[in-house]
Amino acid sequence: MIDKGNINELAELVPITSLRNLVSDFKVTKGELFLNVKADSLVKTITFLKDDVNFQFEQLIDICGVDYLNREPRFDVVYHLLSISLNQRICVVVQVADKTPIPSAVSVYETAEWYEREVWDMYGISFFGNPDMCKILTESSFNDYPLRKDYPLNGSVKWSYDEKEQRLTAKSVDGII
């Protein structure tokens, strides 16, 4: 088994490689290295992290959305990368405003397609360059983004079978925020 690499050594590489032009800010918190990047330089950053010999992040573990309701810009999109060769993990964070598309990571990691669709489904953050940007989890008639902080906890519609019309109907209800 490969020993877990030192995260501080990885952080020291950030200012001396070409990441210094791409990353706006970086920090080590709770044993994780966070890179804050602008949306324009996202694809360049993760391409560099994948290809560079000092980083070798071959695998995209997950893409998450985070909703900071009263912050501007409102959302974070967090890319979790794993280096199997060096046994390292890294988080790349992009801040994005509401209704602002950000570039897709499909050209670098193909697995990003479904993760981005999930982020679109849950937070309404769209990605340009994704070949199939549509819903993945919720039903097609569902028009809200349920993991946003201003979405009601118990939802906005309730399903039931209408005996008169002989079909399933979605009745809208008052939500509890």
Binding site: L153, N154, S160, I176
Partner: peptide, 14 residues
């Protein structure tokens, strides 16, 4: 029961 996506009982459907 209070979730946004789950039907509150399958007797609402069948």
């Amino acid at each position: 029961n209070q979730s946004y996506s789950v039907v509150e009982g399958c007797d609402k459907v069948v």
